[in-house]
C-alpha cells in the first residue's frame, strides 16, 4: 500500500464541514419534530379513528415502510416540480424526511398506545376525565413514555438517513463532503472525516434525547428508570 494519507489538505475546508453539520442538525431537528407530530396523529387515527381513516393510515404506513427513502425523495422532489412549483432542495428534503419518519413513528407510537391497559381507561372514566383529558394524560403521554427509547433510535437513524438527501443537492454534510472531495481529490480522507462527524453527531443526538427525556418524563425520572 503506497497511499499517502493527507488530512491536512482538508483543513482549509473546516468552515464548510461545520456548515454541513449545522444544516444536517437543522434538517434532522425539523424532520424529527414534524415527523413526531404527524406520526402521533396517524397512530391515534389508526387506533381510534373512523374506518376510512384507519384504512388511509394503514396504506400510508405500508407504502412508506416498503419503499426506499431515496425513491421517496426523488418522487417528492420531482413530483413538486411536476406540479409546477419550485421549492428549495432543502424544503423538499425536509418534506420527504417528514413523510418517511412519520410512518415509522406512527408504528412505534401505535405499539405504545396498544400497551395501555383497558383498566386505565376505565379508571379515567371513573375519575370523570373528559375525552381530551383522558387522551392526553392517560393514553398518549404514558404511551410515548414507554416507547421513548425506540423513538430515540428511530430519530438517530433519521439523522443518519438525512445523508441521502444529498442526492437532490440539499447542502447537508454528505453533499458538502461530495463537493470537497471533488475539489481536493482526497476522497477517502474526506469520507473518513465525515464518517467521524456523523458518529459524533449520533452520540450528540442520543445524549440530547436522553436529557430531553429526563426533563419531560418526570415520573420516570423519579422512579429512576433508565431512558
Amino acid at each position: 500500500m503506497t497511499y499517502q494519507f493527507d488530512f491536512a489538505a482538508l483543513l482549509p475546508y473546516w468552515r464548510e464541514f461545520a456548515m454541513g453539520v449545522w444544516l444536517t442538525l437543522q434538517l434532522s431537528f425539523v424532520a424529527t419534530v414534524l415527523g413526531f407530530v404527524l406520526g402521533t396523529l396517524c397512530a391515534i387515527g389508526r387506533s381510534d379513528g373512523a374506518p376510512w381513516v384507519k384504512a388511509l393510515v394503514a396504506c400510508y404506513v405500508e407504502v412508506i415502510r416498503n419503499t426506499p427513502l431515496l425513491v421517496q425523495i426523488f418522487i417528492i422532489y420531482f413530483g413538486i416540480a411536476t406540479l409546477g412549483l419550485h421549492v428549495d432542495a432543502n424544503v423538499a428534503a425536509v418534506l420527504a424526511l417528514v413523510v418517511n419518519v412519520g410512518a415509522y413513528t406512527s408504528e412505534i407510537v401505535r405499539a405504545g398506545l396498544e400497551s395501555i391497559h383497558k383498566s386505565q381507561l376505565e379508571a379515567a372514566e371513573c375519575l370523570g376525565l373528559s375525552r381530551p383529558q383522558t387522551y392526553w394524560h392517560v393514553i398518549v403521554r404514558p404511551a410515548i413514555e414507554r416507547v421513548y427509547p425506540a423513538l430515540t433510535s428511530q430519530y438517530v437513524l433519521l439523522m443518519l438517513a438525512s445523508s441521502i438527501t444529498s442526492q437532490i443537492s440539499a447542502e447537508e454534510l454528505t453533499a458538502v463532503a461530495n463537493r470537497i472531495q471533488s475539489d481536493t481529490f482526497r476522497s477517502f480522507e474526506t469520507y473518513i472525516v465525515v464518517g467521524v462527524l456523523y458518529l459524533a453527531l449520533s452520540f450528540v443526538v442520543r445524549i440530547a434525547f436522553w436529557l430531553f427525556g429526563l426533563v419531560v418524563f418526570v415520573r420516570r425520572r423519579k422512579l429512576g428508570t433508565a431512558l
Binding site: 443518519l160 438517513a161 444529498s166 454528505t174 476522497s187 469520507y191 456523523y198 458518529l199 449520533s202
Partner: peptide, 11 residues
Amino acid sequence: QGTPLLILLFL
C-alpha cells in the same frame, strides 16, 4: 450503526 450507509459505501 453510527455512520450512514451512504458514507460506508463511499469509504
